[in-house]
């Protein structure tokens, strides 16, 4: 287990880059939350000394660039298939730590079958789910989590439930499955939220370490570029209408006692 940062003897280091975070300049847009979420994931990998036994699974979308930022082995999966790929990795190497990092189009649209069945099998994996209510990489099209009334490049008049359906709440949906060990929704728009979200990722990782089944942490995230907002306004949107529709909280947390 690598030593936690901040153990210098004569002067007190209050901050250090997590060992598992690659020291490169971020290519993400200003105000995007991927960088913050990467750092939280890297900190939690460090906390449990998992770096050298981790295999990450990257998905398709902006999330794919996971391998440029997290200093662990990473396999890239087709769009939506990360939970299946992760299943294949974990079944082949049950002693390794395996996590997926997926966006909302990936996990909540094209990959619904894979995430639901991986959760239902109780695959011993951790899922980091980044919900920014849009398809970032392809240019801001409607996502399964796009809010009602939200304008995107494919809902130019705003999302209308009568034709487009409703934004889907994945954390709650997955919490309803027997195989899911942990399901929570967090945000990273305030320092307090960041602390809480790190707590959630720690819990999720502990579930895997303890062999409890699938754990998922849904992050409410921004996409200022495709939302057409300034970064600060994007934070406000997360704290406002997004958090109202997608409530933050823990929806399922398995304790040893109920794990047969």
């Amino acid at each position: 287990m690598s030593a936690p940062p901040g153990k210098a003897r004569f002067s007190k280091a209050v901050y250090a880059r997590p060992r598992s975070l690659v020291d490169v300049k971020s290519h993400f847009c200003p105000g995007c939350h991927h960088g913050t979420i990467h750092k939280i994931v890297a900190e939690c990998i460090d906390r449990y000394g998992l770096r050298e036994k981790t295999i990450g699974v990257a998905c398709v979308g902006c999330s794919v660039f996971l391998y440029d930022y997290i200093d662990v082995d990473v396999v890239e999966s087709p769009h939506g298939r990360a939970p299946a790929v992760a299943t294949g990795v974990k079944r082949a190497q049950p002693d390794k730590f395996v996590f997926t990092y997926q966006g909302d189009g990936d996990l909540a649209a094209i990959g619904t079958s894979e995430i639901i069945h991986a959760a239902n099998r109780g695959e011993n994996l951790s899922v980091i789910f980044v919900n920014n209510t849009t398809y970032g990489m392809t240019g801001g099209q409607m996502a399964p989590t796009t809010m009602l009334g939200q304008k995107t490049s494919t809902t130019p008049y705003g999302r209308d439930f009568r034709g487009d359906g409703y934004p889907i709440r994945m954390a709650e949906l997955l919490a309803g499955l027997e195989g899911t060990a942990y399901s929570a929704r967090v945000a990273v728009s305030t320092p307090a939220q960041i602390r809480k979200s790190k707590e959630a990722v720690r819990k999720a990782f502990e579930m895997q370490i303890n062999g409890m089944g699938l754990s998922i942490v849904e992050f409410l995230s921004t996409c200022p570029t495709n939302w057409g907002m300034k970064p600060l306004d994007a934070q406000k949107r997360v704290l406002g209408e997004m958090s109202e529709y997608f409530p933050l909280g823990v929806f399922k947390e398995r304790v040893q006692a109920d794990f047969a």
């Binding site: 299946a84 294949g88 990795v89 082949a92 079958s113």
Partner: peptide, 25 residues
């Protein structure tokens, strides 16, 4: 490991993960 997948789409991707782990699948 024998696993009956939810679809052939999932099947081939489970294979991708196991193959990336260096195992015959």
């Amino acid at each position: 490991t024998f696993l009956q997948a939810e679809s052939e789409v999932a099947t081939i991707n489970m294979m991708l993960g196991t193959s990336a782990s260096g195992k015959r699948v």
